[in-house]
Design a protein around this nucleic acid. Sequence first.
DNA 1: TTGAAAGCGTTACCAT
DNA 2: ATGGTAACGCTTTCAA
Lengths: 349, 349
Amino acid sequence: MRKSTEHRKMTVKTVAAILGVSTATVSNAFNRPDQLSVKLRERILNECSLLGYYGPNPAARSLRTGATGVVGIMLAEHLAYNFTDPCAIEFLQGVAEELDAAQVNMLLMPGRQEFYKEKSLEAIPDRYILYGPPRDLEIINRIETQRKPIVTVDFNLPDHLALNVDNYGGAYRAAKHLFEQTSGPVAVLGIRLCDSVKLQTMENQQTNSRSLSVSCQRLDAYQTAAAETGRLIPDNYIWSSDENTWSNGIKAAKEILATKPRPTGILCMSDQFALAALHVARSMKISIPEELKIIGFDGTPESKRHHPELTTVYQPSLDKGKLAAQMVLNPGNYKSIMLPTELKIRESA
Amino acid sequence: MRKSTEHRKMTVKTVAAILGVSTATVSNAFNRPDQLSVKLRERILNECSLLGYYGPNPAARSLRTGATGVVGIMLAEHLAYNFTDPCAIEFLQGVAEELDAAQVNMLLMPGRQEFYKEKSLEAIPDRYILYGPPRDLEIINRIETQRKPIVTVDFNLPDHLALNVDNYGGAYRAAKHLFEQTSGPVAVLGIRLCDSVKLQTMENQQTNSRSLSVSCQRLDAYQTAAAETGRLIPDNYIWSSDENTWSNGIKAAKEILATKPRPTGILCMSDQFALAALHVARSMKISIPEELKIIGFDGTPESKRHHPELTTVYQPSLDKGKLAAQMVLNPGNYKSIMLPTELKIRESA
DNA sequence: TTGAAAGCGTTACCAT
DNA sequence: ATGGTAACGCTTTCAA
């Protein structure tokens, strides 16, 4: 008698032999219930589980069928970075919720070339969510040659579904509000800003010309709102950091608040940066919002929990994630979407 | 002339035919540089990339070789939950950093049975990190029958490398400190507490007997410290929530602070809970630490940023993640490890 | 240094 | 309703 503890390698072939049926029948039991009698199917499933055969080998199966049941989430950067950004995390949470529900797997993929050197990992997923333009844009070509459903988030790709949020509108309203609240100098703390302006970058990298649309849109909106209020944000009041991390935020905020004349308002392109600015301001005993007004971006949960509560531009990151997942699972049902943003006026400005 | 834009499906066979070499040679060009001349190899690699052949198909390759180059991170719960828990995120960040560096892929896997129904997803990864005991323990069996390297984190499995932190010690020091600071009643706000005690659970689930070692160890330590100080934490001052989320923390904290006599100290099993408790206390105008002392657990970055700063038991989540990754990539070099925890006395207690 | 061919575990077609 | 079998794309042994 064969016992499950024995554990020779189990394959359709071996279990078929043991059960005295053909491999086709075993396969059908797992994949096409309609192809065999209910009774037989049940017997097979039971015995298989006893034997320690839990289902077809995924590699073999997908070699044969050409599908894997995994959705690739192509990130803009390496993985570790995304676990650092509250906004990205919320987005991923949304994606995960939907993918969980649909019982498909999610493969996080770094947006950097070196991971794909002489491997074609891009062949693994059946469908793709591109969360921001990958740092190395050539990756996109490789994905496109696969002819699989693609949803782009926070940027656009010709001929593919796109999911965006109204960055311009949100940033515009934020800036307008800020300029109404203060007549002093206003600084910008941005992320990966385009090099159309010469600015106070935090790193000595050459500012990158790769698709930075989100930040550029926001900066554009800030400047437009400034102009409409008869103001201007000069280049030396614009900071840019390559990564949306707390420590970068602290560093930049210190520089900003050391500038003479000291800004009386800061437009931050993330809540994390805004919170960091608040932190620095507090340590410098600068009172909020009296002496300094700060507006964030994203509307992460933390922005609400902080004291004083952060005025910020809310974007529905969680829903964005859910929606991206739904779109990629069911591309036929959707058109490209632009989600609204909303200025949440709270205590910091 | 064949152009890369043409895009018939590229396989070793087709490119070999086009280049006029054998499939074995193409394969060797990608996998075993020593098997052919440098010149030939370079030519092949170049032409392939021109042709749009970026490397061997992963499914076919791993069917043949039996390896995939992916590390599975088995989570205790569904994916979405883990993106909700700051401590889990930090751990994942650490894992991601190392895995990024080693250029191996990471597959997040939910710890729930229903995902594996009639699929053997567990066959995909080459190695496993089990982050906490999966909710459905049967999954462990399936992983074990694969005979692949396994590292368990925050729990133990016979015959496998384990990575733990000193929960008992940390909790003990925290409780000792708290009992020295206040003579009033002390409440516990725990996570998935064992059912050895009857307690104020936040959900009406039957308290689960699955491996809850971490929380139990902490509770044990709290009680021991209490006893040593001539105190006791009665069952009706112990709350337990099934999920470490902000909203659960708020809900529990409200109940706790409505209890008569009102606790003058709360031992929280996560920083998120502690921060939530601080939030509720503030809204009730309870002064910290004068009227209420709160201690958290984990030492997440937020605990330091908050005002008042949170007294908490630090555990090196980021390093834990890095170490877990290193261990699983190189099991031979390691023995099971217990990482220290440290009581960080700050402002809240 | 290169080539021919077997086989990894599965599924889907076609027969029965 | 069930079974036989070719083919998915690759790597690796063996022979040349």
